[in-house]
Amino acid sequence: MNQPLIKARDLHKYYPVKSGFLQADKSLQALSGASFDLYAGQTLAVVGESGCGKSTLARLLTLIETPTAGQLTLDGIDVSMAADAATKKQLRQTVQMVFQDPFGSLNPRQKIGDILQEPLIINTNMTAEQRKQEVLTMMARVGLRDEHFHRYPHMFSGGQRQRIAIARALILKPKIVVLDEPVSALDVSIQAQVLNLLIELQQEMGLAYVFISHDLSVVQHIADQVLVMYLGKPVEQGASEAVFSNPQHPYTQALLSATPQANTERKRQRIKLIGELPSPLDPPSGCSFHPRCQNATAQCKTTAPVMEQRGDVSVACLLVK
């Protein structure tokens, strides 16, 4: 197979946190040790609860922040090596992003046409007429009409705004799109429309998606690979069918059983997760999941597991053999 569009090796991101006067600064381990390959036309879903490092991963992939450690290669270019402006520009055109909240991600004081032209103004030398043509073509592709060009974002519904955001992400013809919970702020009937649009665009343009979500039913539908994270660490990773049909890590199992399904027969035989998410500032010793894990042993409290291949998937758990 050809080379992966994203090659992430052991990505880490720490944030320094001031913990008060005369006290040593702590570091917040927002992401520790994410590795994956993503090929054109494939979707990697990153799943987990709040504080699991999903958004940090998105910020690293979109070059808003640089990793503290680890290697990130986008479309064959090592991000840490890209120092000159031209390479940076090229990298930026490779990765684009769609945000969760379609109400916050569009500048309320700009017209749709100006919002969509902005990436072209910054990154290309097109004339105004060419830009407009390009924007109108893209608008038509995501299901917006020409007359929307001169309107302001507040005149659109959530679903239409998300279409605008998708158009903005795709206008530079990127190869990778990071989708940060792209449908979770939308109504059910609109969710399906936007997901369909994303699937069609992926097939047409051969895009690689990094799909960040907490909604497992959506993930199951759209993903090729799944990366489950807990407190900044990957706990399970593998092909979508393998993870969903036979989850190995106790956290994945709990997450799956906690997700409600539109099925009246299935009345709660849930794996109960006790307790809350621990603070990422003060993660538990050993396996960070052990305080909430049903199967935790004495060893789990002291030894941190590492990701190991177990059958079809990689799992970070001492008890999965």
Binding site: R92, M97, G104, S105, N123
Partner: peptide, 9 residues
């Protein structure tokens, strides 16, 4: 939207 502009360069 500011982050989005940043991502756009």
């Amino acid at each position: 939207y500011v982050t989005a502009s940043r991502v756009a360069g």
